[in-house]
């Protein structure tokens, strides 16, 4: 006899969440998920098992596409605002991370650069590309594992407040600090420091501009309170 595949509620809910995430904003999906959970609780109390209550609850909540269309009519542009927010945030994180990698490799490379060979040059360039692409790889892995919506929820909790301004600007100032450190070490031999100072300034201005866009696009801050 062929073994029956067991129904796993967590996997099923995760799959539902991912399917919904493509069409709805994070907040709308979360609201519908509490509805799904409430419905499942009710159906289980009526004697249905996990699998039956899950499918019936899904049916009651409805398909993502028509839901998304109705929600879009109720609040036009909301989903696009959120998509642009995530794209700008991803660009900001990747570019800041890239600058950090660049600065650290420059520093490490320079300290060993007295007897620079083509091998060390190659290692420096290769590690620069590998580490710079790390956030893209992490992002792709989340996507493949279907954990993107969960990760998005956690990241949203972390970034969807004004704290974002402090973190992003702090990060870019730290990057500039590393660059200046490199400049100080290098200045003994070279005098092309203006380029680096220019880069630092450009980086801080770019971060400030991106953060301003993000704050403008930021989803409404949610307060979580305990009911009395």
């Amino acid at each position: 006899m062929e073994p029956q595949t067991r129904f796993d509620l967590n996997t099923a809910v995760n799959h539902w969440r991912t399917e919904m995430a493509f069409n709805l904003t994070a907040e709308d999906r979360r609201e519908l998920e509490t509805h799904l959970q409430d419905t499942m609780t009710e159906l289980r109390q009526r004697g249905l098992n996990d699998e039956e209550s899950f499918w019936l609850a899904c049916h009651r909540v409805g398909r993502p596409q028509p839901l998304a269309e109705e929600l879009e009519k109720a609040n036009p542009g909301k989903i696009w605002r959120e998509r642009v927010f995530w794209m700008v945030l991803a660009y900001l994180v990747i570019s800041l991370w890239g600058s950090t990698v660049n600065a650290v490799i420059n520093l490490l490379h320079f300290s060993r650069a007295v007897h620079q060979t083509s091998t060390t040059q190659f290692v420096a360039t290769a590690s620069h590309y590998i580490f710079s692409l790390l956030p893209v790889v992490v992002f792709a892995m989340w996507l493949v594992k279907g954990k993107l919506s969960l990760a998005q929820e956690r990241l949203a909790g972390f970034f969807s407040t004004k704290r974002l301004i402090v973190y992003a600007l702090g990060w870019s100032v730290a990057n500039s600090g590393l660059d200046i450190l490199f400049l100080v070490k290098q200045a003994v031999r070279m005098s092309s420091g203006y380029i680096i100072l220019d880069n630092c300034l450009f980086q801080i201005i770019r971060t400030a501009a991106l953060v301003a866009i993000l704050v403008w696009l930021m989803p409404k801050t949610e307060r979580i309170k305990k009911t009395a």
Binding site: E31, H35, R60, V61, G62, E70, K73, A74, N75
Partner: peptide, 15 residues
Amino acid sequence: WSDGMLYPVLHRLER
């Protein structure tokens, strides 16, 4: 009411 369709109504009233 079909469950999911209440939410667009709520969101419209909120808007």
